[in-house]
Design a protein around this nucleic acid. Structure first.
Lengths: 335, 335
DNA sequence: ATTCGCCGCGAAAACGTTATATCCTTTTCA
DNA sequence: TGAAAAGGATATAACGTTTTCGCGGCGAAT
């Protein structure tokens, strides 16, 4: 059986209350007693039970995180940054990896509620009515990181996806490309689906480029999806000279596909990514990408959440971070 | 304030005990009462407090995980697999990302103890005396995943790193390579440092290849490290015609370096990786690699840990999984 | 007809902490 | 000098559950 505060008290010859005082660094304990208590703690190897502590303090120092895919470079980087911030603020992370598994998400939201987590971070926006309702019901601060759900009542930390996509497309246009393929995300996603698509459309239209239906495809942000859609783009009569994929993973897939068709990036086709994940520097050619400040996104997420938890309501629901075009090797002027 | 079991009891007109019985699916509750209780739970939106439950049951359903680097494809894949198994067995994961930060590890081990986690998973082997001592002291089942520390008293799930490395090297030898560069890990690591190095050495010696000091280098498993060490290998007079890096990340770094020097993989230099991470299929050329069964490793880890937790002591401390050479494009016969 | 055992329920005692109330000292200050 | 304030310690009541125990009622077995 674990040693408990009572044992420490007995061993040190003081009351339980005094031990508790020493543990929590309160005043009103003389140094000699404090020393005796600390010795006892040391000797018995006592570690206070956070469970009991949480119960009486009504505070768990727990934060629940729902990640769509742990193995994705993008999400794991955000998570890593979130973990740093959490640890620095003495919060612990309960993580759930829902790989497209909607049931698991529902289950975990319940677990989070039962565990009395103080806040919840969600990194995807495909929330159905049931989940939306549940989130509202449980009355725990929730923040969306890197995505923004339709429901305006939820806080979120994002970039301006529309503008970022607009800027990325514009850059390709400025390089002289007349035809620019687009590999988008799920149109049911507002943030990364619709907004990025609109940005692309409007940049094209504003600059007098015609939108070709054949050049526009929608994937699921993953490498394989980028590969397959690129294959389709290459199969049409006059493939675009540049391709904008709304995730680095899909951009990588596209690059691989292009190479597998004996074409070169960027000489034959320029490829632009989105996210600024670690991948961009690991692949050859290095990937020009519309970068989200991933690290900062994690930090900002925790920042806002911690404020929500401590009761300081955030004035606006959204924190919009700056996107940044990082030019590497995968895009070049149209010759 | 949260609604509690007492409120449910009052609302349903029964005793607290009865509500608890319904919650835990015990017998001895008549159907009509059960229905009334369930209605009350529904109406009040009651979720039982795991905190209180844990306290009285002396069981938290929590498992602590210490990951060296969340952003690494290898670790995040193991973690993802561990999470799946945990979730399936109604366990929740408390994750800690220690990026070379030894203090953070110490801190988290304490947190794990205070949180009364039922088991701890550690994915690195650089544990110093203090940590070793602490782990022994806290008396919670601990298992090492993908690594095996010197201390034989700890359980672990690994591959036979020596043999895997031996086999990988032998494959390169069989391809006709006379000179094979080696980019190893930290020699202070038993599993991935020493064992893999010995495997390489012995495979070379057993097949009459001379070991060239200049061809042997030691990195830190990361992409950048592979790049830098490959640069050194390329700077010597007669670079090896094949290179074996003991992580896929380093192998990728090596490939990038080779390409940046206007050489081709595998035509000029063959590159062999280790791990079988997702990267292997994402890069071009695809990476031949000595694959660890990453998914299974996560599963086996949880499997053993759960048995340890339930008190069924595991006969042997180690579970050794099968490694497998997966031949892709990055290695070819020496011409 | 009495005992025995299972049902079906509730009251109350845990679980390991912190918070509250209380009590005795000692110090401070008018 | 006396009263109030502050310091130092304790006993006890929470916190929200599960578990133990006990107590009727009822059918079956003795």
């Amino acid at each position: 059986m674990q040693v408990k505060i009572k044992d420490v008290a007995k061993h040190a010859g003081v009351s339980v209350t005094t031990v508790s005082r020493v543990l929590n660094g309160e005043r009103y304990v003389k140094d000699d007693l404090k020393a005796k208590v600390n010795d006892a703690i040391q000797e018995l190897g006592y570690a206070p039970s956070q469970i009991a502590r949480s119960l009486v303090r009504n505070k768990t120092n727990l934060i629940g995180v729902i990640v769509p895919d742990l193995t994705s470079s993008f999400y794991s980087t955000i998570l890593s940054s979130i973990e740093d911030m959490a640890s620095a603020n003495d919060y612990n992370l309960l993580v759930c990896n829902i790989s497209e598994n909607i049931d698991k998400e529902l289950k975990y939201l319940n677990v989070f509620q039962e565990m009395r987590v103080e806040g919840i971070i969600i990194m995807h926006e495909k929330i159905n009515e049931e989940i939306r309702h549940l989130i509202h019901k449980i009355n725990i601060p929730v923040i969306f990181s890197s995505v923004k759900p339709l429901d305006q009542s939820f806080a979120s930390v994002i970039v301006d996806d529309y503008q970022a996509s607009y800027d990325a497309t514009k850059y390709l246009i400025e390089l002289g490309h007349e035809t620019i393929g687009f590999i988008g995300g799920d149109l049911q996603d507002i943030t990364s689906g619709q907004n990025r698509y609109s940005g692309y459309r409007n940049a094209m239209a504003d600059n007098g480029k015609t939108l070709v239906d054949e050049h526009i495809r929608f994937g699921d942000y993953k490498v394989r999806s980028g590969y397959l859609h690129m294959k389709e783009l290459l199969s049409i009569e006059r493939p675009p000279t540049a391709v904008f994929a709304v995730s680095d993973d899909m951009a990588l897939g596209a690059m691989n596909c292009i190479r597998d068709h004996q074409l070169r990036v960027p000489e034959d086709i320029s490829v632009m990514g989105f996210d600024g994940s670690l991948l961009t520097e690991l692949v050859r050619p290095t990937l020009t990408s519309m970068e989200q400040p991933i690290q900062e996104m994690g930090r900002a997420t925790m920042d806002v959440l911690l404020k929500q938890i401590s009761g300081k309501k955030i004035p606006t629901g959204d924190v919009v971070l700056e996107h940044r075009l990082v030019i590497r090797e995968s895009c070049q002027p149209r010759i």
